[in-house]
């Protein structure tokens, strides 16, 4: 088991390294590093000085080494706009994005599993078919448009929910969170729902497929033959089997959810790192962009690793095999 974890860790480190190479090439080979790393407002002399200071006159491999060395120390450059370390800027915005993404994932579980279970247990009922038809929209509707419609209906027409911002926040562990206040929660509801739409559809379909696959299995029939209540058969026996693939997929989708928060944050003016990256791209604040990309790649790889670990915890078959 430990050797297996160790192997996966080494693998993860290699992927991170590969991604740093890609980002480095993107910045230094495809793009013009002088333009990317030096403020566009700088004059000729300043530029020349910066080129030497940044080591841009050195061979590429040396530059990469320096980039990596700095990155390891958490130094990914300074924002032109805020004149602050890019990584710190990202880190400040990260809680807002994280709470949005986590809430979205929770929503997709809370809504997707019951709906999918219903559609799976009653595949031919009107409601079951409607749920499936509806899930197609979750996949194909452009999420920014759905966000606009949510605002139009619930904020503008009905006036039930606030349309933008994080609302009131409260401090926990020195970080501001919206989910701790009523007002913050009200602000978070629409963006979280919007962000979770695709995931709801995904979880729903997985759950339905799992239910349809598992219900005819012998073990379900045997559980019923033991005299268990239908509730226990479905929610313990069947669910336990469905949960494993769902957890895996949700885990893997978490990275995408964080990435897609870019869109939702823009629609709802949610001050997370997605909003920051769009603003940064618009003003060409490239150190922030690089920091964001490295951050999200790192996040992705960490999540994949965690999901793999979780998978072995959840599924006794995998767990015992890997132990041997």
């Amino acid at each position: 088991m430990t050797t297996w974890i160790f192997r996966r860790l080494i693998q993860a480190i290699f992927v991170v390294l590969a991604m740093t190479v890609i980002v480095f090439i993107g910045v230094n080979v495809i793009g013009d590093p002088v333009e990317i790393l030096i403020s566009p407002q700088a004059d000729q002399a300043e530029r020349a000085r910066a080129v030497i200071a940044l080591g841009l006159d050195r061979p590429l491999w040396e530059q990469y080494g320096r980039f990596l060395w700095n990155a390891v120390q958490g130094d990914l450059g300074k924002s032109f706009v805020f004149n602050e370390p890019a990584l710190r800027l990202i880190a400040q915005r990260m809680p807002a994005t994280m709470e949005l993404a986590v809430t979205a994932v929770l929503l997709s579980i809370v809504l997707g599993i019951p709906l999918g279970l219903y559609a799976g247990l009653r595949p031919n009922s009107f409601a079951g078919r409607s749920i499936m038809a509806g899930s197609i929209f979750g996949f194909s509707l452009p999420s920014f448009w759905v966000g606009l419609m949510l605002i139009m209906v619930f904020a503008v027409q009905l006036g039930w929910l606030p349309s933008t911002g994080r609302g009131q926040t409260a401090t926990l562990f020195g970080v501001q969170w919206s989910f701790l206040t009523r007002d913050g929660l009200a602000h978070m509801l629409m963006p979280a729902l919007n962000l979770s739409l695709g995931n709801i559809a995904l979880v729903l379909r997985l759950t339905r497929a799992g239910a349809r696959e598992n219900m005819p299995m012998d073990y379900v029939k045997f559980a019923r033959a033991k005299g268990l209540s239908p509730v226990r058969v479905v929610f313990v026996h069947v669910m336990k089997n469905i949960t494993i693939p769902i957890v895996t997929v949700i885990g893997l989708e978490f990275g995408s959810t964080v990435a897609f928060a870019v869109v939702t944050e823009s629609v709802f003016a949610w001050p997370g790192m997605g909003k920051l990256i769009i603003d940064s791209i618009n003003v060409l604040d490239r150190p922030v962009i690089v920091a964001y990309l490295m951050m999200i790649v790192f996040l992705f790889i960490t999540i994949n690793l965690l999901v793999d670990l979780l998978y072995t915890v959840l599924d006794p078959r995998v767990r015992l095999e890997s132990r041997e």
Binding site: Y219, F222, A225, K226, G227, N241
Partner: peptide, 24 residues
């Protein structure tokens, strides 16, 4: 349901399939 598994029990054909693989 109260009869099943209590006063009338059934054993299935394929033992590899009758037990739930993820429950102890």
């Amino acid at each position: 349901r109260q009869l099943r598994g209590n006063r009338i029990a059934m054993i299935f054909q394929d033992p590899m399939m009758t037990l739930n693989p993820v429950l102890r």
